[in-house]
Simulated assay, not measured.
Amino acid sequence: PDWLPTGQEVIRLRSGQTDLAVIADPSIAHAVRPQATMIALGLSVVLELHGVLRERQAQLDDAVFQLRAMRQVARLLSSVHSTEETESMVLDFMAEVFFCWWACLYRQDGDRYVPRVVRSLKGSITLDPINAAALDRALPLDQPVNHTRDAAIGVLMPPTTQLVVSLGAGGERLAVLALGPRLHDQPYGSPECDLANTLSFAAAIALKNALLVTELQSAATTDPLTGLLNRRAMEERLGTELSRTHRHPICTTIVTIDLDRFKLVNDSLGHAAGDRCLVEVARVLKQQARTLDAVGRMGGDEFLIVLPMTTAEEAKAYLDRVHRGLATIEAEHPEFGRVSLSVGVAESPRHGSTQDTILSAGDAALYRAKRAGTGRVEIAEP
């Protein structure tokens, strides 16, 4: 109104952060003072209640925020997942709990922490590895959460990182989480840091459990000397591939292998040298195989290779690569003498449609190869 510049203050109330004034036309200021006082008192009460409600709402939001996080952790800990699945789940729930634009989980690989899983709401991003020694110095195990305002941390992390969370259990750092800016530019305050500290321990336990399960599974399926699949794992894999040949018009070929003159290496150089020879041969067999092939040690100096969607004749290409690889063993380890293999090849369903029949056919071909001399390859007879 046009009288406002010359208006008269009737009453002013101050309460906390509230400053309330009633201004009236000077001609009626005295007359409206009683009503203005009542109005001001009423408004001040309303404003105070509004402030209390806002504070309670913020507390309720924090409680819901933490409840959602705890529910995510409970889901993560209540079931067993692979290491890769657990890494993804940990990153997903941390990114969801803190509403951040991007997040990355790093795992140590040698002298670096490398990005294992990255999530971003702004399209794909590329993150570089981090020097492990520098990060371990800047982020001690007893300090699991750190703002990138700390210069020692900030210089190591991606430019927009705002919070770094270490996942540690049993005195061992299992992973490091980098969290980017939060949605709506909300800061990472003390409540968020405290929650991140709590969640980091639970997430580390989940990741540790997944790593232990992976180790147990590996121990149950891996030959401890060579790192190849063991007999049990190879039999399971062969069964899987044979069942596929029953459902589809494809073939699967097995290659049975014995190392020639292995007993001579053991007797003349000792069992340690024999083990080294087996490891080198296993390396070549694995190195020359395709991703879909299965390579295993059945025991002693006996190996088995399963070649899916491969005929017996096509398996010769794999054996040619193996033969060239054996030459490198002879050059690097002349003490072993000439390294050669006796090989039997059998194809399913042509030479057998069950595990017993195809393995018997492969063993028979291997026996014929050994009788014919050293370094021989024989294909099973129909």
Rank of each mutant, 00 (worst) to 15 (best):
P1S: 13
G7Y: 01
V10R: 11
G16D: 06
D19T: 10
A21M: 09
P26Q: 10
S27C: 04
P34K: 07
T37W: 02
G42R: 11
V46Q: 12
L47C: 12
Q59P: 05
A63V: 14
S79Q: 14
E85F: 08
S88P: 06
M89H: 15
L91C: 09
D92R: 15
D92N: 09
V97I: 12
C104S: 12
P115G: 09
R116K: 11
L121R: 13
I125Y: 04
I125G: 08
N131R: 00
A132T: 05
D142L: 07
A151N: 02
G154A: 03
M157Q: 04
Q162W: 00
A175T: 04
L177C: 01
R182M: 05
G189P: 00
P191D: 02
C193S: 09
N197Y: 07
L199P: 02
S200M: 05
S200E: 07
F201Q: 14
A202Q: 15
L211I: 13
L212K: 05
S218K: 15
S218G: 14
R231C: 13
T240A: 14
H248G: 02
V255L: 03
F262C: 06
K263F: 03
N266F: 10
H271S: 01
L285T: 09
L292C: 13
D293E: 13
V295F: 05
T310W: 03
L326A: 00
G337F: 03
S340I: 06
S348N: 02
H351W: 01
D356K: 04
S360Q: 10
G362P: 06
A364I: 06
A365T: 02
A369R: 00
A372D: 13
E378L: 01
